[in-house]
Each structure stands twice: as C-alpha cells, then as structure tokens.
C-alpha cells in the first residue's frame, strides 16, 4: 500500500507545472494573499473559486507577473514554473508572459483586424519567418480558438466588430497563438451569454490536451463543469484545494461547504 502511494505521488510530482509556496501579496498595506501553497498540474484545468475580493484573480496574476504592472503591489514567496523561479532577477517578465498566456475577464481584442489580433504575438516574438508561416500560425490559433469557421472569410474585419462571445474566443486564439505552456483565464465567461459560455467551456476542455489551464470563475457550476482540480479561496487564504468532484461533493472545510451551498460569499 505504502509503495503504491509513493509511486502515485511521484507521478503527481512529475506532472506539476506550477508550484507556489508561501506566496504573499500586498497591495500597499493590504495583505491580499496570505501564504498560499498550491501545485498546479500540467494538462489539467484548475479552477480558482471564491467570493469577490478573495484574492483569486490576484493570485492568478502572480503566475505571469501581471501584478508587476501595479506599482503598489508586492509579491513574496516562491512560484516556480517547470522548476524555474519566475520571480528570479534573471527572469524577464516579457519572456514569461509569452510562456504563460492570459485571457481576461472582459474580451479585449486590439482595435485592429482579426488577423492582426492573432498575428501580433507571433510577430513580436519572431515566430514566423514569412507571411505563409504567419498565415498558418494564425489559422491554427483561430481553429484552436474554435472561431476559424466564423471568421475565415473576414480576417480583415476589425476584431472589435465581433460579438462578445466571438471576441472572447478571438482573445483565446490570440493567447494560444504564441504557443504558451500555461493558459491563465480570469473569469473568461463573466461577460458572455450562456451560449457563448458553453462554447468557451467546450474550448477550455479541448485546450486541456495541450496546456495547463488555470481558470478563475465566479460560477461554481462552471468550475464543476470544466475543471479537474479546484481551489477555494477565502479572504486571501487558500482554504481548500483538491479534486473538483471531491470539493463539490465532500468538502473538508466548513467554509468551503458554506460557500458552495451559498451561505457565504
């Protein structure tokens, strides 16, 4: 029995994409994230749930150092992707963000054509040698974003002219165009209607084949539908982290239980 468990744990350890230990985040004097430890696995959808202001988005933004852009924000602790400390001095956040893509709450396509939206990342990272290469990358990304069929005839049309759901899928396509290894999604469906949400969720499930996906969501149903692992945040603490099924059916912590049954939040 003991041996079996050890092997299982080893496999788990190998699969870890992101490991965070003792992460603290301060906004000025506010202690926003308190000592969070979490291991995020590769090729898995991990959902962060919790009431508003619990710090789940803040923590997500630590994973690609987007918090660097906020002057008063200070992050301490140890966050490693594939064993590399991303807060090391030698790490250039620009390079990191190419590796860790991000999709935001509000669809935010650039006010440019659909093609240019997707091609922007590959262009600045010099991923395409020529126009044909770039065309291929754009098509692949749009297909992965499950929006190719809808936009293939109007790649020159402005990205801002699409519907909300299409815009969000365009943003996902834009994020995957740079071939990231981790995809962070900050409430990607909060601005979408149920149909668009369904499409994006399906897409997230497919993306799991290639990426480690971390999704912040307000909707517990969504977390239950798309994720394999769920982390529950409350008041800056990581209260509980585990298999999604277990969190929703048999939570260990009374706070998790109250939240998923709608008593706090």
């Amino acid at each position: 029995m003991n041996d079996m468990r050890k092997i299982e744990r080893d496999v788990d350890m190998n699969d870890v994409k992101i490991s965070a230990k003792g992460v603290q985040v301060y906004y000025g004097t506010t202690h926003a994230i308190k000592d969070v430890d979490v291991l995020i696995q590769d090729k898995t959808v991990t959902a962060f749930i919790g009431p508003s202001g619990c710090g789940k988005s803040t923590f997500l933004r630590c994973l690609n150092r987007m918090n660097d852009t906020i002057d008063i924000c200070r992050v301490t602790g140890d966050i490693r992707i594939d064993g590399d400390d991303i807060y090391d001095k030698r790490v250039d956040p620009v390079q990191l963000r190419a590796k860790v893509g991000m999709v935001f709450q509000k669809p935010n396509p650039f006010p440019k054509s659909i093609y240019d939206n997707v091609a922007y990342g590959p262009r600045i990272h010099g991923m395409a040698k020529n126009k044909a290469d770039l065309d291929e990358i754009v098509e692949r990304a749009l297909r992965r974003g499950a929006i190719w069929d809808e936009v293939k005839d109007r790649l020159d049309a402005p990205g801002t002219g699409l519907s909300g759901g299409q815009q969000q899928r365009l943003c996902i396509a834009r994020a995957v165009a740079t071939e990231p290894e981790v995809l962070l999604m900050d409430e990607p469906c909060s601005a979408l209607d149920p149909i668009a949400t369904g499409q994006v969720e399906e897409l997230i499930d497919e993306l799991r084949n290639d990426y480690s996906v971390v999704i912040v969501t307000h909707s517990m149903q969504q977390a239950a539908r798309v994720s394999q692992k769920t982390a529950f945040f409350h008041l800056g603490n990581l209260v509980e982290y585990g298999e999604t099924g277990q969190i929703f059916t048999n939570p260990q912590d009374p706070r998790t239980e109250s939240y998923i049954s709608g008593k706090i939040g």
Binding site: T69, G101, N108, F110, Y120, R174, A175, T178
Partner: peptide, 26 residues
C-alpha cells in the same frame, strides 16, 4: 482603456511595444 495595455502585456509585448503598438495609435 487599460484592458488594451493588459492585452498587449498578456501576449508578451514589452512595455514599450504595448505603448507604441497599441496605446499611442489610440
């Protein structure tokens, strides 16, 4: 809108690229 800056930084643009490619034209 700050979302444009985030979008550019999110795909790995440097600060200067995000300013000159996206913010300044707008």
């Amino acid at each position: 809108p700050p979302s444009i800056r985030s979008a550019a930084l999110g795909v790995g643009a440097s600060k200067m690229q995000s300013v000159f490619h996206h913010v300044l034209p707008l």
